[in-house]
Each structure stands twice: as structure tokens, then as C-alpha cells.
């Protein structure tokens, strides 16, 4: 299993009701808490068959998948072009994705991806 989470601060902007959880995702926390953890079967993200060849999702694919499948509207709150919008920090296994190749990073088994929005209040 790999896991992907979208932090509460991003969720909250979406008013939680407009983020759709697809059937095969299991929601581990409720929307009030730190993040909604999304798990999906390994084969969907890690071993997708295309052109007769197995390939692993990279971060670019994951982001576009989230945009197409989870964000019912206002994708601009999460994505900009192929990547996440400025102000969203992407963490792969508790490390800044910049250390791991950003969009080109290929998902591995047991990876944990976290999207967090930087806060500005105080």
C-alpha cells in the first residue's frame, strides 16, 4: 500500500464537501483532523499497465489524478499547470519532495505522500 494525504488546511478551503472520495479509497481520519488519509490499492498507482508495459506513477501523474478525481471544482486551489500551486509543500516520506526529484519522483511501495498548505495566520 502507498498512502497519500491532503492536509486539513487544504481540505478546509474546499469546504470538505466538494472533495470526492472515490470508492476504493478509505478515509482514515475525519475531515476535522490533520488530514484525510487516502489509501489505494497498490496496483492502481504503482503498477499501471500502459502500452502493454508496467510503469509506476510519478508525482506528475498523481497530481493530475487528484485533480481529475478528487477535486470537483476550483482546481486552482490545489494545482497550477502540471504541479501544485505555489504555497503547497509536498512531502514524500517526511521529506521535502525537492530532495527527491519533485514531479519526476516515481512512487514506491509504502510511500507516504503529504500535501500541506503553508499557513499564514497568527
Amino acid at each position: 500500500m502507498a498512502c497519500c494525504a491532503i492536509s486539513g488546511s487544504i481540505q478546509a478551503q474546499y469546504n470538505s464537501k466538494v472533495i470526492l472520495l472515490p470508492f476504493n479509497f478509505q478515509c482514515l481520519n475525519n475531515s476535522d483532523s490533520f488530514c484525510v488519509m487516502l489509501w489505494w490499492p497498490l496496483q492502481q498507482a504503482l503498477n499501471v499497465t500502459g502500452n502493454g508495459q508496467a510503469y509506476r506513477w510519478d508525482m506528475k501523474k498523481l497530481i493530475s489524478w487528484i485533480k481529475e478525481n478528487l477535486l470537483q471544482e476550483r482546481p486552482e486551489l490545489f494545482v497550477q499547470g502540471d504541479s501544485v500551486r505555489p504555497g503547497i509543500l509536498v512531502l514524500i516520506n517526511e521529506s521535502d519532495w525537492e530532495l527527491l526529484g519533485e514531479l519526476e519522483y516515481h512512487l514506491e511501495e509504502n510511500d507516504c505522500i503529504l500535501f500541506i498548505s503553508t499557513l499564514h495566520g497568527g
Partner: peptide, 19 residues
């Protein structure tokens, strides 16, 4: 970390979002 500022409409402050 943040070479580009976030779009203003994506920034929630305490007076809108609560704390």
C-alpha cells in the same frame, strides 16, 4: 522554499478561517 507567493485567493487568514 517558496520562490513564488501563493495566489491571494488561496490564502486563508485567521479572521476568515478562525483559529
Amino acid at each position: 522554499l517558496f520562490p513564488t507567493p501563493p495566489p491571494p485567493e488561496t490564502v486563508t487568514n485567521c479572521s476568515d478561517g478562525g483559529v
